[in-house]
Design a protein around this nucleic acid. Sequence first.
DNA 1: GTCCTGATCCTCT
DNA 2: GAGGATCAGGACG
Length: 206
Amino acid sequence: MKKIITEENKIISAQFNRVLPVSFYGRDTRTVARELLGHVLVNKNYEGMTSGIIVETEAYLQNDPACHAARGMTKRNRAMFGPAGRAYIYLIYGMYYCFNVVTREQGIGEAVLIRALEPVGGIEIMKKRRGRDKLTELCSGPGRLVQAMGIDKGQNGQDLTGNGLFIGAAGECGHEIINTTRVGISEGKELPLRFYIAGNPYISKR
DNA sequence: GTCCTGATCCTCT
DNA sequence: GAGGATCAGGACG
């Protein structure tokens, strides 16, 4: 399993120009969360380009008590109600940012939280940003991957099909996907809305 | 205005 | 395994 993904890295690296279209995101949130696994998140800025394979996601649905959008639109969660394929970035615990991908049609507040990446490109930049050398400590958690990728709160609402921040399409990986319950929430934790690639060493623990 | 909470991570013990 | 760091948004008055 691990070998397949590592092999895939080289192929994916050459395929960054193929970007997932808006139609990919404008579907059922659980489907998007599951199908995002294996694709590649890319961020380009003045420091260079960083990228990683998405290995862990969580779906947040509109009628879900754990979802920020459950109580309607506010200034904070406005991006979740925007068009599909946009970024929703917010501050958590006063210190860390979480990166989400907006799904469904405009006006519906649903999104997919990206929880972990397998680092692929710009690893030296990631190490510098994180102050860590171990690959498994670069992107294994929502706050960590935002820091490693150099994602900024100013990118909240940004179109993920354009330049700079986007998700590149990877080929069929043939990986096994585990569907289980979410992490770090108090309500709605019984719902099986977390997805990750079986046996991947880069998923967040717990 | 004040208070409280939280989709986390890191550093200790 | 426990607790601290740190702050924007939301609830309330």
